[in-house]
Simulated assay, not measured.
Amino acid sequence: MSEGFTIPKFELPNFIGAIGRKLPQWPHALALVGGLNAALKLKLLSADDLEAITDKVFQVQVRDTGGTARFTYRNGLFRPLFRSEGEADLSFSANLSAYLQLLNRQEDPDTLFFKRELEITGDTELGLLVKNMLDAIELPKLPVGLPKLRH
């Protein structure tokens, strides 16, 4: 459980998802792979785990925003996939609040899965590997508040 700010469970209004599904989806993939590649640069991900996910196709869907990102890991980098050809090897689907709670370490994937707030489909063994890989990441501690500016 995370200390500090608690992210409440919420669901964005349906019209946001309806609009989001009509917008280009590639910006979501670019943002996600940017974050994952930053984690690579910081050496937060295990080389053995990365080898095991090479050339696998992942999909992350944020249901209430209508956003979907598809990506893969190849040649030492996470790379966006701009076409939705075929099924992903592993797919995650949840509302924005569930993903934010995961990032904040307020909830774990198992809890959200069993509450039916996080849907995981595809290769079960790959899903367990990714879950364990993400659980092993030690996130840097960020300051709670902003420093006061002096005049």
Rank of each mutant, 00 (worst) to 15 (best):
A29G: 06
G86W: 02
L139T: 07
T65M: 08
T111D: 03
N104H: 10
G127E: 03
T111R: 06
F10G: 06
T6D: 14
P143Q: 03
K115Y: 09
A31N: 11
G145H: 06
T65S: 07
F92D: 10
L50Y: 06
L102Q: 03
G86M: 10
R70I: 04
Q101L: 10
N75F: 08
F15M: 01
L90M: 03
L23I: 04
R83N: 07
P147L: 00
D48V: 07
V60L: 11
P13H: 07
S97M: 03
D89L: 13
G122W: 14
V144T: 12
F10W: 08
G4R: 13
G4C: 10
Q101C: 04
V62G: 09
G66E: 00
L142V: 09
R116H: 11
R63I: 13
E3F: 12
L32Y: 08
G35L: 06
G122P: 13
D64H: 05
F71E: 05
K22E: 05
A88F: 15
F82T: 13
D123G: 02
N75I: 01
N104Q: 11
Q61A: 15
F10C: 02
F5R: 07
K22T: 09
D89T: 12
Y73R: 00
H28F: 12
E117Y: 04
K43G: 09
I16N: 04
G35V: 07
W26H: 15
G4W: 15
F82P: 06
H28S: 11
G34K: 02
V57D: 13
L45S: 10
R21Q: 06
A29F: 00
S46Y: 04
L118F: 06
A94G: 07
L44D: 10
F5T: 10
S91F: 12
S46K: 09
P109A: 08
Q106T: 01
P143C: 02
T68R: 00
T121A: 07
S2V: 04
K148L: 11
T124G: 03
A88L: 09
G17I: 02
